[in-house]
């Protein structure tokens, strides 16, 4: 079985032994700050999907060793403005791994602009939004650059990699949620927070509409991107101020629907992932799936990686598992 979790001492040794290899790292910020220089980027988080199932711990480091055909090229930093030019740095026949500090300006900017970034889909962009222990008051999400060993609370880090000739990357998502046939919801702006919506062509106060529909906060609204379901999850609904906030932005002009209740997430996920038994080099899953489906101690098959405050497969996603695997060209 593939190993991804390490004590801090073993993580240090692993990185020292694999200095040239591109690595994706996750763990408590106190541990990440004490890791040696190497070709890695990391994000703060104490929740993981591992070979031992879901784990919450601030004592372990998760290291995802990427496929041998993936070669490190560079680590670049992007702020809320420069992230809009990220595709200009994409390597040819490569893949770019991203880690953004949760709730930072760059997180918001990327979420709101990703779909419209020039060339965003021209090469796989995969990664996650870092976070913190939800029970730790005042905690902040951060990211770490393994080349410089610097911590950042507001910049995204991207590890651009090339892929050996004869191979290509395949980026996919696993989303067991399905749309519930019914009202069609649209929004006038792309935003993490709204007050109004257009339901079946009629303008409504969204909070009031949600109340009238008996909405369930744990179920995302879903957009159909030509056959791929993209979730947006509720963060809070304030019935007094009428403000509705989300963990990813709703997109202007895109049509959303409520989603069907899932039942047992673990079984639904396993059905959807069609587990081949091969563990993808990189994968991650959402904190909301971890919490709402009580994934601690439970397995999501051979998908190992951080539990995140947002998943990235080209654009910012919610309540979705993302994975990248390398395929051999025919």
């Amino acid at each position: 079985m593939r190993k991804t979790i390490y004590t801090h001492k073993d993580a240090v040794q692993f990185i020292l032994n694999n200095k040239e290899k591109p690595l994706m790292v996750a763990g408590d910020e106190s541990l990440l700050g004490e890791l040696p220089e190497g070709n890695w980027i990391g994000g703060s988080i104490p929740y993981f999907m591992t070979e031992e199932g879901g784990i919450q711990s601030d004592k372990i480091v998760q290291i995802l060793e990427l496929e041998d055909s993936i070669r490190f090229k560079s680590i670049e930093k992007y702020d809320a403005e420069s992230i809009k030019g990220i595709a200009a740095d994409y390597p040819k026949n490569g893949v770019s791994f991203i880690c953004i500090p949760g709730f930072s300006k760059t997180h918001v900017s990327f979420g709101e602009n990703a779909l419209e970034i020039d060339g965003i889909f021209n090469s796989p962009l995969v990664g996650w939004v870092s976070g913190f222990d939800l029970n730790k008051e005042g905690a902040k999400a951060s990211v770490f650059d393994g080349n410089t060993r610097q911590q950042s609370f507001d910049q995204a880090l991207v590890m651009h990699c090339e892929i050996e000739e004869g191979y290509y990357p395949r980026l996919e998502i696993v989303n067991p949620f399905e749309a519930l046939e019914g009202d069609r919801i649209e929004f006038k702006e792309t935003s993490f927070e709204v007050e109004d919506a257009i339901v079946n062509g009629k303008e409504v106060v969204f909070a009031d509409y949600l109340k009238s529909q008996g909405y369930q906060e744990k179920l995302p609204i879903i957009a159909n991107y030509n056959g791929s379901n993209v979730n947006v999850c509720f963060q809070a609904v304030d019935f007094e101020s009428k403000k509705v906030s989300f963990y990813a932005p709703v997109v202007k002009g895109v049509e959303y629907q409520f989603s069907k209740p899932l039942g047992d997430y673990e079984s639904a996920f396993r059905r959807e992932m069609k587990d081949s038994g091969n563990s993808p080099g990189f994968s991650c899953n959402c904190i909301l799936n971890y919490l709402y489906s009580n994934l601690e101690g439970k397995s999501t098959g051979s998908f190992y990686g951080p539990i995140t405050f947002g998943e990235i497969a080209y654009v910012l996603l919610n309540q979705t598992a993302v994975y990248l695997e390398v395929m051999k060209k025919n």
Binding site: L115, F121, Y225, S228, A313, Y314
Partner: peptide
């Protein structure tokens, strides 16, 4: 079939 194509066409 591919996620990237589906998303690009959505754009």
């Amino acid at each position: 079939q591919n996620l990237a194509t589906r998303m690009m066409f959505k754009r």
